[in-house]
Protein backbone atom coordinates (compact mmCIF):
# COMPACT_ATOMS: atom_id res chain seq x y z
CA UNK A 1 0.00 0.00 0.00
CA UNK A 2 2.75 2.44 0.92
CA UNK A 3 4.52 4.10 -2.01
CA UNK A 4 7.76 5.94 -2.10
CA UNK A 5 6.93 9.59 -2.49
CA UNK A 6 9.01 11.84 -4.67
CA UNK A 7 10.42 14.46 -2.36
CA UNK A 8 10.43 17.26 -4.95
CA UNK A 9 8.44 20.47 -4.65
CA UNK A 10 5.22 19.88 -2.75
CA UNK A 11 2.08 20.03 -4.88
CA UNK A 12 0.13 21.33 -1.90
CA UNK A 13 1.91 23.77 0.36
CA UNK A 14 0.14 25.28 3.35
CA UNK A 15 1.97 27.98 5.29
CA UNK A 16 0.95 29.65 8.54
CA UNK A 17 -2.79 29.43 7.88
CA UNK A 18 -5.22 30.97 10.34
CA UNK A 19 -9.01 30.72 10.21
CA UNK A 20 -11.62 31.91 12.69
CA UNK A 21 -15.41 31.94 12.71
CA UNK A 22 -16.32 34.89 14.91
CA UNK A 23 -14.67 34.26 18.27
CA UNK A 24 -13.95 30.63 17.45
CA UNK A 25 -10.31 30.20 16.37
CA UNK A 26 -10.23 27.01 14.29
CA UNK A 27 -6.81 27.05 12.63
CA UNK A 28 -3.93 28.72 14.43
CA UNK A 29 -0.92 28.79 12.13
CA UNK A 30 -1.10 25.52 10.20
CA UNK A 31 1.83 24.36 8.03
CA UNK A 32 1.72 21.28 5.77
CA UNK A 33 3.43 20.07 2.59
CA UNK A 34 1.96 17.30 0.46
CA UNK A 35 4.13 15.68 -2.21
CA UNK A 36 3.05 14.10 -5.47
CA UNK A 37 1.82 10.53 -5.15
CA UNK A 38 1.38 10.41 -1.39
CA UNK A 39 -1.71 9.98 0.76
CA UNK A 40 -1.58 12.32 3.74
CA UNK A 41 -4.07 11.68 6.50
CA UNK A 42 -5.10 14.65 8.61
CA UNK A 43 -6.15 13.16 11.89
CA UNK A 44 -7.86 14.90 14.74
CA UNK A 45 -10.93 15.19 16.92
CA UNK A 46 -14.22 16.55 15.59
CA UNK A 47 -14.33 20.33 15.43
CA UNK A 48 -10.56 20.81 15.17
CA UNK A 49 -10.76 22.37 11.71
CA UNK A 50 -9.82 19.38 9.52
CA UNK A 51 -12.68 19.92 7.05
CA UNK A 52 -12.11 23.68 7.12
CA UNK A 53 -8.54 23.05 5.97
CA UNK A 54 -9.51 21.10 2.84
CA UNK A 55 -12.30 23.58 2.06
CA UNK A 56 -9.62 26.29 2.04
CA UNK A 57 -7.49 24.16 -0.29
CA UNK A 58 -10.31 23.91 -2.83
CA UNK A 59 -11.33 27.57 -2.45
CA UNK A 60 -14.70 27.01 -0.76
CA UNK A 61 -13.47 29.02 2.24
CA UNK A 62 -10.85 31.76 2.51
CA UNK A 63 -8.17 31.72 5.16
CA UNK A 64 -7.85 34.82 7.37
CA UNK A 65 -4.06 34.75 7.11
CA UNK A 66 -1.35 32.62 5.52
CA UNK A 67 -0.80 31.01 2.16
CA UNK A 68 -2.22 27.92 0.43
CA UNK A 69 -0.42 26.94 -2.75
CA UNK A 70 -1.83 24.12 -4.89
CA UNK A 71 -0.09 22.92 -8.07
CA UNK A 72 1.98 26.11 -8.08
CA UNK A 73 -0.97 28.49 -7.71
CA UNK A 74 -1.97 30.58 -4.70
CA UNK A 75 -5.61 29.55 -4.18
CA UNK A 76 -6.78 32.76 -2.49
CA UNK A 77 -5.60 34.76 -5.52
CA UNK A 78 -7.69 32.77 -8.00
CA UNK A 79 -11.13 33.74 -9.24
CA UNK A 80 -13.57 32.66 -11.94
CA UNK A 81 -12.07 30.61 -14.76
CA UNK A 82 -8.64 30.30 -13.10
CA UNK A 83 -10.16 28.87 -9.94
CA UNK A 84 -12.35 26.51 -12.00
CA UNK A 85 -9.30 25.32 -13.95
CA UNK A 86 -7.61 24.41 -10.66
CA UNK A 87 -10.77 22.79 -9.28
CA UNK A 88 -10.94 20.48 -12.31
CA UNK A 89 -7.66 19.00 -11.08
CA UNK A 90 -8.99 18.45 -7.56
CA UNK A 91 -11.56 15.84 -6.59
CA UNK A 92 -13.50 16.50 -3.39
CA UNK A 93 -15.34 13.65 -1.70
CA UNK A 94 -17.84 15.10 0.80
CA UNK A 95 -18.56 13.63 4.22
CA UNK A 96 -22.23 13.08 3.35
CA UNK A 97 -21.44 12.32 -0.32
CA UNK A 98 -23.45 15.38 -1.49
CA UNK A 99 -25.05 13.46 -4.37
CA UNK A 100 -27.67 15.42 -6.31
CA UNK A 101 -30.95 14.05 -4.93
CA UNK A 102 -33.05 14.78 -7.98
CA UNK A 103 -30.70 12.99 -10.40
CA UNK A 104 -29.99 9.31 -11.05
CA UNK A 105 -26.50 7.92 -10.53
CA UNK A 106 -25.87 8.24 -14.28
CA UNK A 107 -26.96 11.90 -14.26
CA UNK A 108 -24.85 12.59 -11.15
CA UNK A 109 -21.78 11.34 -13.00
CA UNK A 110 -22.61 12.99 -16.32
CA UNK A 111 -23.30 16.36 -14.69
CA UNK A 112 -19.67 17.44 -14.07
CA UNK A 113 -18.41 15.59 -17.16
CA UNK A 114 -20.54 17.31 -19.81
CA UNK A 115 -19.98 20.72 -18.25
CA UNK A 116 -16.21 20.44 -18.05
CA UNK A 117 -15.22 18.42 -21.10
CA UNK A 118 -16.28 19.88 -24.44
CA UNK A 119 -17.57 18.03 -27.50
CA UNK A 120 -18.14 14.60 -26.01
CA UNK A 121 -20.39 12.27 -28.00
CA UNK A 122 -23.16 10.32 -26.26
CA UNK A 123 -21.12 7.11 -26.71
CA UNK A 124 -18.05 8.70 -25.07
CA UNK A 125 -20.10 9.98 -22.14
CA UNK A 126 -21.66 6.54 -21.61
CA UNK A 127 -18.28 4.85 -21.83
CA UNK A 128 -16.70 7.15 -19.23
CA UNK A 129 -19.65 6.90 -16.85
CA UNK A 130 -19.71 3.11 -17.08
CA UNK A 131 -15.94 2.87 -16.70
CA UNK A 132 -15.79 5.01 -13.55
CA UNK A 133 -18.78 3.19 -12.07
CA UNK A 134 -17.07 -0.12 -12.71
CA UNK A 135 -13.93 1.13 -10.96
CA UNK A 136 -15.95 1.74 -7.76
CA UNK A 137 -17.77 -1.58 -8.23
CA UNK A 138 -21.28 -0.19 -8.58
CA UNK A 139 -22.24 -0.65 -12.25
CA UNK A 140 -25.63 -2.06 -11.24
CA UNK A 141 -26.73 1.20 -9.60
CA UNK A 142 -26.53 3.32 -12.76
CA UNK A 143 -30.27 4.03 -13.00
CA UNK A 144 -30.95 4.34 -9.28
CA UNK A 145 -31.48 7.61 -7.42
CA UNK A 146 -29.38 8.46 -4.31
CA UNK A 147 -32.27 7.70 -1.92
CA UNK A 148 -32.17 4.07 -3.08
CA UNK A 149 -28.48 3.65 -2.18
CA UNK A 150 -26.87 2.59 1.10
CA UNK A 151 -24.42 4.88 2.94
CA UNK A 152 -21.40 2.99 1.58
CA UNK A 153 -22.76 3.04 -1.98
CA UNK A 154 -23.36 6.78 -1.74
CA UNK A 155 -19.75 7.30 -0.64
CA UNK A 156 -18.51 5.24 -3.59
CA UNK A 157 -20.70 7.12 -6.08
CA UNK A 158 -19.50 10.40 -4.55
CA UNK A 159 -15.90 9.29 -5.15
CA UNK A 160 -16.80 8.11 -8.69
CA UNK A 161 -18.29 11.53 -9.46
CA UNK A 162 -15.00 13.20 -8.58
CA UNK A 163 -12.94 10.61 -10.49
CA UNK A 164 -14.81 11.20 -13.74
CA UNK A 165 -12.79 14.40 -14.25
CA UNK A 166 -9.55 12.45 -13.65
CA UNK A 167 -8.22 14.70 -10.86
CA UNK A 168 -4.57 14.91 -9.84
CA UNK A 169 -5.47 15.54 -6.20
CA UNK A 170 -8.17 13.87 -4.13
CA UNK A 171 -9.54 15.41 -0.94
CA UNK A 172 -11.55 12.96 1.17
CA UNK A 173 -13.65 14.45 3.98
CA UNK A 174 -14.32 11.76 6.61
CA UNK A 175 -14.62 8.92 4.05
CA UNK A 176 -15.56 6.28 6.64
CA UNK A 177 -17.79 8.37 8.93
CA UNK A 178 -21.10 6.71 9.75
CA UNK A 179 -20.29 3.42 8.01
CA UNK A 180 -20.22 -0.13 9.40
CA UNK A 181 -16.75 -1.74 9.90
CA UNK A 182 -16.95 -3.94 6.77
CA UNK A 183 -17.93 -0.97 4.56
CA UNK A 184 -15.12 1.07 6.18
CA UNK A 185 -12.62 -1.59 5.06
CA UNK A 186 -14.07 -1.46 1.53
CA UNK A 187 -13.79 2.33 1.42
CA UNK A 188 -10.19 2.18 2.69
CA UNK A 189 -9.41 -0.31 -0.08
CA UNK A 190 -11.11 1.92 -2.63
CA UNK A 191 -9.00 4.92 -1.55
CA UNK A 192 -5.84 2.86 -2.09
CA UNK A 193 -7.13 1.54 -5.45
CA UNK A 194 -7.88 5.09 -6.58
CA UNK A 195 -4.33 6.10 -5.72
CA UNK A 196 -2.91 3.19 -7.74
CA UNK A 197 -5.21 3.42 -10.74
CA UNK A 198 -5.54 7.20 -11.12
CA UNK A 199 -2.09 8.14 -9.74
CA UNK A 200 -3.63 10.67 -7.38
CA UNK A 201 -2.21 12.58 -4.45
CA UNK A 202 -4.64 12.72 -1.55
CA UNK A 203 -5.46 14.41 1.71
CA UNK A 204 -7.73 12.24 3.81
CA UNK A 205 -9.55 13.89 6.69
CA UNK A 206 -10.58 11.44 9.36
CA UNK A 207 -10.76 10.68 13.05
CA UNK A 208 -10.80 6.94 12.30
CA UNK A 209 -7.42 5.43 13.23
CA UNK A 210 -7.97 2.29 11.14
CA UNK A 211 -8.64 4.43 8.07
CA UNK A 212 -5.52 6.48 8.88
CA UNK A 213 -3.35 3.37 9.25
CA UNK A 214 -4.68 1.67 6.10
CA UNK A 215 -4.67 4.64 3.71
CA UNK A 216 -2.03 7.07 4.94
CA UNK A 217 1.57 7.25 3.79
CA UNK A 218 1.94 10.07 6.25
CA UNK A 219 -0.16 11.19 9.20
CA UNK A 220 -0.55 14.80 10.30
CA UNK A 221 -2.10 15.14 13.72
CA UNK A 222 -4.23 18.29 14.05
CA UNK A 223 -5.03 19.36 17.59
CA UNK A 224 -6.03 22.78 18.89
CA UNK A 225 -5.72 24.33 15.44
CA UNK A 226 -2.11 23.25 14.84
CA UNK A 227 -0.29 20.17 13.57
CA UNK A 228 1.29 18.61 16.64
CA UNK A 229 2.96 15.67 14.97
CA UNK A 230 3.68 14.58 11.40
CA UNK A 231 5.14 11.28 10.23
CA UNK A 232 4.21 7.70 9.51
CA UNK A 233 1.43 6.14 11.57
CA UNK A 234 3.91 4.35 13.83
CA UNK A 235 6.08 7.46 14.26
CA UNK A 236 3.13 9.63 15.24
CA UNK A 237 1.82 7.22 17.81
CA UNK A 238 5.25 6.49 19.26
CA UNK A 239 5.24 10.16 20.27
CA UNK A 240 5.48 11.19 23.90
CA UNK A 241 3.17 14.14 23.29
CA UNK A 242 0.38 13.65 25.84
CA UNK A 243 -2.50 14.88 23.63
CA UNK A 244 -1.44 12.59 20.75
CA UNK A 245 -1.19 9.62 23.07
CA UNK A 246 -4.58 10.32 24.63
CA UNK A 247 -6.19 10.52 21.15
CA UNK A 248 -4.66 7.17 20.23
CA UNK A 249 -5.58 5.49 23.53
CA UNK A 250 -9.12 6.83 23.47
CA UNK A 251 -9.75 5.66 19.89
CA UNK A 252 -8.43 2.17 20.43
CA UNK A 253 -10.28 1.76 23.70
CA UNK A 254 -13.42 2.78 21.78
Amino acid sequence: MKNDTTQEDPIISIRDVYKSFGDLHVLNGVDLDVYRGENVVVLGRSGTGKSVLIKIIVGLLQQDKGSVNVLGQEVSGLKGQELNALRRKIGFSFQNSALYDSMTVRENLEFPLVRNVANLTRAEINEQVESVLESVGLSQTINQVPSQLSGGQRKRIGIARTLILKPEIMLYDEPTAGLDPITCIEINELINEVKEKYQTTAIIITHDLTCARETGDRIAMLLDGQFLQTGTFDEVFASNEERVKSFYDYNFIQ
Partner: peptide, 17 residues
Protein backbone atom coordinates in the same frame (compact mmCIF):
# COMPACT_ATOMS: atom_id res chain seq x y z
CA UNK B 1 -32.03 25.23 1.13
CA UNK B 2 -31.81 21.47 1.29
CA UNK B 3 -29.13 21.46 -1.41
CA UNK B 4 -27.16 24.07 0.53
CA UNK B 5 -27.21 22.27 3.89
CA UNK B 6 -26.39 18.88 2.33
CA UNK B 7 -23.40 20.46 0.51
CA UNK B 8 -24.82 19.73 -2.97
CA UNK B 9 -24.23 23.37 -3.94
CA UNK B 10 -20.63 23.14 -2.68
CA UNK B 11 -20.26 19.92 -4.69
CA UNK B 12 -21.18 21.83 -7.85
CA UNK B 13 -18.67 24.57 -7.03
CA UNK B 14 -15.78 22.17 -6.46
CA UNK B 15 -16.63 20.44 -9.77
CA UNK B 16 -15.98 23.79 -11.49
CA UNK B 17 -19.70 24.24 -12.21
Amino acid sequence: GSMRVTEQIDAMEVSAI
